[in-house]
Structure formats: structure tokens, C-alpha cells
């Protein structure tokens, strides 16, 4: 019996969705707008997060080691740095490797390769590249390096010829602030957008059900139980959500494609289209489930109003 009832409720929901074509269409359109708002703020915030993380990864402190330093002295220094809690990684780039990388980076630039050949010797120093766990920690690491006399540049026992943190300091600090700011703003915008979308959707579905309020009254007088009357409306709400979320996802492809070039200019490797395609499953699940939840909950609450009396 329960199964028959569920089957009837689902069927009634589908039939009503189809027969109330114009109402369904407008509800779906409004939900597309709502879901589009939710999805775009989520995707943009997440995308910015990824893009900024990429940038964050590019921040580091380069310690240029004196050419006279022995390999073991450099390794000692590397170990010392690794004991600092703020330090995530320390990478040692030997003079040879630095030269190889420099050459491959400029292989198309004949003037540079020619110049290198003319010098004959390897002009590049060995480097220790230090990455911190958080952008804000670079200052601390830099201070540590300055206060240790055997590390600081110019000291008699130092093997360090130069630390480049100070050169990048302003840029690094500005970027740290920007990352925090964007994350905060993104969170606030997402929350506001989600709130607005829920309200818009709820009101649209409430209007759609308001149109059917007399029908609800008739159903009750004929002897329909509350669950049996409410069921098809909830199914209809779920259908609005499903159709709207599929259309939203379809809409996103050309839009991210169109934005591809713009976003690539800013962030190098990652672009919006790439992000959308790479995270499609996750985005699909978020959009579809929020569509279903929005439709179902709105319908449930909207019908409740007409089912309160005996």
C-alpha cells in the first residue's frame, strides 16, 4: 500500500509539473537565477582560492649561497632551517642545476645562451629556497636569518651571500593581505547570495502553490490526508530544482568558456573553464543537491500553510 501511495504521489507530481506548464516554466527560470547565483559565487570563490594558492606557492625566500661554501656546510644550513616550525620545505638547488634550469628557461633566447657560452664559467650561485607554511611567516623566517650571524650576509663566517626576502617583502605582504581579504569577502558574498536565492525561490514556489490553494481545499474535502496532498507538490518542487540545476550547469559551460581568456590573463595556468571542467563532479553534486533541497523544502513549507486547519 505504501509503495502504491508513493508511486501515485510521484506520478501526480510529474503530471502536475507537465500540465501546469507555464507555472512550472516560470518557477524553473527563477530557480535557474537562484542556482546560478549560488553556483557562480561558490565557483568564483573556490577558483580565486585555488588561483591565490598557486600564487602563494610562488612566494619563497631565496638564500643565495656563497660560491666558496662546501656542500656539507650548505646541507648543515638546510638542516638548521628545517628545524624551524614555520618552515614547510627547504629546497637545495645546486649551481649546476641552477644553470640547467636557467638554460632551459631561455633556450629560445640566443643572446642569453650566447652570453653564457662566452663567460664559460657558471655564473649562478647555489640557492636554498625556503617555503613557509603561511605567507605571514616569511617575516619571522627572515628575521631569524638576519639575527644569526653565521647566516647573515657579510659576516666573516657566513656562507650566505644574499637573502632576497627584503626585495619581495612589500609584494609578499600585500599578497597575504589580499588572500585573506578575498577569502573573507567571498564568504560574505556567498552567504548573502545563498540567502537571497533561498528567499526568491521560496516566494516563487509559494506563489505557484497559492494558485493551487483551492485545489488543496478540495483535496481535503474529498478525504485526502495531509501527506497525500503535500506529496505531489514536493515532487513538483524537486522537479523544478532538478530541471533548473541541469539547465544552470549547461549554461555554465559557454560562460566559463567565454571567460576563459579573461581569467587566464590574471592567473596564468588555471582558468575558469579548466577549473569548471576539472571540478565538474563536485560542482554538479552541489548544484543538483541544492536545487532539489530548495525545491523540496520550499514546497513543503508553502503547502503547510494550507494544511493547518482540520
Amino acid at each position: 500500500m505504501l509503495w502504491t501511495t508513493i508511486k501515485r504521489i510521484i506520478k501526480a507530481g510529474f503530471v502536475s509539473f507537465w500540465r501546469n506548464g507555464s507555472v512550472s516554466l516560470s518557477a524553473v527560470f527563477v530557480m535557474i537565477v537562484a542556482l546560478f547565483m549560488i553556483a557562480s559565487t561558490l565557483i568564483i570563490t573556490a577558483f580565486l582560492g585555488t588561483a591565490l594558492k598557486d600564487l602563494q606557492d610562488k612566494i619563497d625566500i631565496n638564500i643565495y649561497v656563497d660560491a666558496k661554501a662546501t656542500e656539507s656546510a650548505i646541507m648543515d644550513l638546510k638542516k638548521q632551517l628545517e628545524t624551524l616550525p614555520e618552515v614547510k620545505t627547504v629546497e637545495y638547488i645546486s649551481r649546476e642545476r641552477a644553470l640547467d634550469e636557467f638554460r632551459s628557461r631561455h633556450e629560445n633566447d640566443h643572446r642569453i645562451t650566447q652570453a653564457l657560452d662566452e663567460i664559460g664559467d657558471n655564473p649562478l650561485p647555489a640557492t636554498l629556497t625556503v617555503k613557509a607554511r603561511e605567507p605571514s611567516q616569511y617575516e619571522g623566517i627572515s628575521n631569524f636569518l638576519l639575527n644569526k650571524s653565521e647566516l647573515s650576509a657579510g659576516s666573516a663566517i657566513s656562507i650566505v651571500s644574499k637573502v632576497n626576502y627584503n626585495d619581495n617583502k612589500a609584494a609578499i605582504e600585500r599578497l597575504s593581505k589580499l588572500i585573506v581579504g578575498v577569502k573573507k569577502l567571498g564568504g560574505i558574498i556567498t552567504a548573502v547570495m545563498v540567502g537571497i536565492s533561498i528567499l526568491i525561490t521560496f516566494n516563487t514556489i509559494r506563489l505557484a502553490i497559492f494558485i493551487a490553494r483551492d485545489e488543496i481545499g478540495v483535496m481535503r474535502l474529498v478525504g485526502g490526508s495531509k501527506e497525500y496532498i503535500r506529496g505531489p507538490f514536493v515532487v513538483e518542487g524537486i522537479l523544478y530544482g532538478l530541471v533548473a540545476s541541469f539547465l544552470t550547469l549547461i549554461l555554465f559551460y559557454p560562460i566559463t568558456y567565454w571567460l576563459k581568456n579573461t581569467t587566464q590573463v590574471f592567473y596564468g595556468g588555471v582558468d575558469l573553464l579548466h577549473y569548471f571542467v576539472a571540478n565538474f563532479v563536485q560542482i554538479f553534486l552541489i548544484i543538483v543537491s541544492s536545487g532539489i533541497a530548495l525545491g523540496a523544502v520550499s514546497s513543503y513549507l508553502a503547502v503547510r500553510k494550507y494544511l493547518t486547519s482540520k
Binding site: V15, N20, R220, V222, G223, K226, K310
Partner: peptide
């Protein structure tokens, strides 16, 4: 004294006809 939950049961024992028909339009 019939509870809201039992009301549908009671109404199924009564057939009702209105002046304005009150059919489900769809």
C-alpha cells in the same frame, strides 16, 4: 472531537457536491 489526523477518514464516508463543482482543474 475528531482529531485532525482522523478527519480524512471521516470525510471519505461523506460524498460532497458543491454549487461551484470544485473539480481539480488540471
Amino acid at each position: 472531537k475528531v482529531k485532525a489526523h482522523d478527519m480524512p477518514e471521516l470525510r471519505r464516508r461523506i460524498g460532497i457536491i458543491f454549487q461551484d463543482f470544485r473539480l481539480l482543474p488540471n
